[in-house]
Simulated assay, not measured.
Amino acid sequence: MKKFPFTLILFALILQLNAQKKNESFRINIRKTNLPIKIDGIADDEAWEGTDVAKDFFMVTPMDTDKATDKSEIRMTYDDTNIYLIATFYNSVPGSYFVESLRRDFSFNKNDNFLLFLDPFNNQTTGFTFGSNAAGAQWDGTMFAGGSVDLNWDSKWISEVTQDGEKWVFEMALPFKSIRYEDGVKEWGINFSRLHLASSEKSSWTPIPRQFPTASLAYTGVLVWDEAPPTPRFNFSLIPYALGQTTYDLDGNTDYETKVGGDVKISLSSSLNLDLTINP
């Protein structure tokens, strides 16, 4: 009976340790700027001065026991409208970049690329991903089940890429209205992933065992806001369509048909959308 209270305390401590975020100590501060930022893939804007830098990435593949050989640096800031990010990727192996396609939501394993993973609710389950390959093709999707990505979701954001033999640079502006998040929360889950095919190296800002994808939200670090992001606004989008059809028969008769309709997407809350279809 004397051991019973001690057992309860030990059990509670174990639960607390298990509940703690694995990479809680990896934190990057994001501070508001009033300076203009031009999205051109060149890190010469004054707004980037004094920002925190996420660097010293960890190698995920081919081995997960050391730091990455390819140097990467990420900076972030924001204003009343957008989240801004600029990423610089240096090459340990000189040569051309591997780019398989310029289509949106390219194949991850066939392109030199960078991906951002955001967990605005800090629940390690759902979130958003954005990124680009070394030629500037965009990637975006929603995240679910802790690390799965649905690339059918496309949002509105802008980005630009520049490159030379030593590095490539990715710069983006992500409107707050393009994502959902909880009002008043000042800590989000975040991670950054890079794939460099010339050196066969996949790396991550936070350490991740190689048997897990870099998209795993359980291994994200923490994005710390200097003040809570702007209050989410009511958002909706209208996607109309119009179709025309002309048919002919063997008797020379002609028939015309038109069809109009569209989709409406309405954000009811930070975690709930209403999708309507008119005349599908």
Rank of each mutant, 00 (worst) to 15 (best):
V222A: 00
R104D: 02
L116T: 08
Q16M: 14
I266Q: 10
E257T: 10
D183S: 08
D52S: 13
F117Q: 10
P213M: 02
S25Y: 05
E187K: 09
T220I: 03
G261Q: 06
L17P: 00
T129L: 03
I158M: 07
I190K: 02
K265I: 15
N133G: 04
Q245D: 13
T77E: 03
N91H: 15
L17K: 03
N111M: 01
A242L: 11
R233D: 12
T277D: 14
D119G: 06
T246P: 00
T254S: 15
E46C: 02
K167M: 13
P62G: 04
R180F: 11
G261F: 13
I278Y: 14
A242F: 13
L13S: 05
E160S: 12
V169A: 00
W205P: 05
W168G: 02
P230C: 04
T33Q: 04
K202Q: 13
A228M: 07
G221Q: 05
R104I: 06
I158L: 03
S269N: 12
L115C: 02
F117C: 02
R210C: 01
Y78S: 10
G147M: 10
A228H: 07
Y181P: 07
R180I: 04
R210L: 06
G146N: 11
G252W: 10
K177Q: 10
S155M: 13
T142H: 11
R233Y: 00
K38E: 14
M143P: 04
A215D: 14
S267L: 07
G221M: 06
E24Q: 01
S200R: 09
A12N: 03
F11W: 04
L268G: 07
P229S: 02
I28H: 06
P280G: 11
Y97V: 09
Q124Y: 07
S267V: 08
L274C: 13
A242M: 11
T206L: 01
E46A: 09
T81I: 03
T77D: 05
L217T: 00
L272G: 00
I14D: 00
Y84D: 09
L10I: 14
F176A: 01
G146R: 07
L8C: 14
M143I: 15
K21W: 11
F106T: 01
F117D: 07
Y84F: 15
L195A: 05
A68H: 03
L118D: 11
D45G: 01
